[in-house]
Design a protein around this nucleic acid. Structure first.
Lengths: 244, 244
DNA sequence: CGCAACGTTGAAAATCGTCAATCGACGTGG
DNA sequence: CCACGTCGATTGACGATTTTCAACGTTGCG
């Protein structure tokens, strides 16, 4: 067994299938073309016709859409092991922006490489499509979050989802996790104002549910938080040994 | 040329590629296993482990998620030519419900058939994945709708998107379209109450923008409606001759 | 005729956004 | 070293949007 089990992507896909040595080597060969981006330097912009995809190795990223009035909606945050821009590969132009929140390291994935992987190792192709399906399921749950939960429930659900995702790649435990997101980023992700984010976080903290302070999320009462948010992690499809 | 050009699925995918005769026959072979469902008889339920997908031939469908408190969020409506349940094929369990709004006719798609299509005709596989990417782009835009637009803009955007989608499969023109959705369905899709849906529709009608009455949507002032909603159809990726 | 589903409207209440101000941490230039 | 500006977090007051509650109208159908 190599050190590749430490790679977030491998850990994540491991929730779907167990790879053979051959598949592992093909997978890691996808991760060779490394690049680094500084926070705020977009990897991709709305309307851009560049059909490049990336795999996030290290750091945090957000994908968002900008509206003509200057406001924006963050669609999701990406953490190590996640794909970036996969949806745009087949669309004529990118429909969203991809912006690093921290300094990041990515692997560039050429479409040609991806297609070769698809034809050579069908199980790996299936695993990639599984990850894509899971990403879509997450977006759907965010839609439910915005449409049918109030601000407190939205926040609770968001923090729990992030915790579950981070656990899967070894970046968080049941007690909490480190998180570089600002209240402005949370606001744009949860469809509310930064002021209200602050109020909601205070409320959750005073109620003894979660504490989000100076870059760290602490679950003070995980069970009650799950109940408040009506959080059912089934959509994350991570039923393996890593799920509690 | 056969009569297959009248098929909504073929028209839709035609916005992405032009098919050869051989590809057309493979595509239509996917549409053989016909089934009919009555309104209200779900094709699929949350948590179900059935990995069947369908292609909608005729009628209207909605996919939605139910919350423990009884409320629901409609993720999208499907119209003829759309896939149903494609995302669930690789997930361990369905993450949403699929419910016919009218009586519908569908073609059942077996995973085995789909995989065979993928290996035999790569261009067709690409077209299917394009459609899936487009569906996801739509969900993302709905997310933006819920997160960053007020009720009037949401409604305007929704009605415009539906119009553009229907045009692509020959079910609507620039003037308007026939639409079986109730105000309750609109409410669950747009994340608001049915009462407010009613008020918003009245406002849009009195402002001379759109009229939605007795199952028919009429664009009274398409340009102003587009401006109100900040509607940019780029995400629908239907840049062909059908887009105005 | 009477029920049921959908549409419509008003009034009161809750949620949330906007505006405005303050504070602490941090880095930079003088 | 200190002044200054910036960014993020925080709080209060006020106002706008939207929900809830309640009632009534309309249509279609058994």
């Amino acid at each position: 067994m190599t050190g590749s089990l430490k790679l977030p992507l491998v850990r994540k896909l491991g929730a779907f299938v167990t790879f053979s040595e051959d598949e592992l080597s093909v997978l890691t060969s996808l991760l060779q073309r490394r690049r680094t981006f500084a926070a705020g330097h977009d990897l991709m912009r709305q309307g851009q016709v560049d059909q490049t995809a990336y795999i996030l190795i290290d750091g945090w990223v957000c994908s968002h859409k900008l509206l003509p009035d200057g406001s924006r909606q963050i669609v999701n945050f990406q953490i190590p092991g996640d794909f970036l821009g996969l949806r745009n590969v087949l669309l004529h132009a990118s429909d969203h922006n991809i912006e690093p929140i921290t300094q990041i390291e990515v692997s560039e994935v050429l479409i040609s490489d991806l297609l070769e992987v698809f034809s050579r190792t069908p199980r790996l192709a299936t695993a990639v499509l599984w990850a894509a399906s899971r990403d879509e399921a997450m977006i759907v749950e965010h839609l439910v979050n915005l449409g049918r939960r109030d601000a407190s429930q939205r926040m609770a659900h968001f923090l729990l989802e992030l915790g579950a995702r981070l656990s899967l790649v070894g970046m968080g435990g049941s007690g909490g996790y480190t998180c570089p997101l600002t209240q402005y980023l949370l606001a744009d992700a949860l469809g509310m104002s930064a002021v209200h984010v602050n109020r909601v976080l205070r409320q959750l903290r005073e109620d003894g549910l979660v504490t989000f302070r100076s870059g760290h999320v602490t679950f003070d009462d995980h069970d009650r938080l799950v109940e408040l948010a009506a959080f059912d992690p089934a959509y994350l499809d991570q039923g393996g040994p890593l799920m509690k």
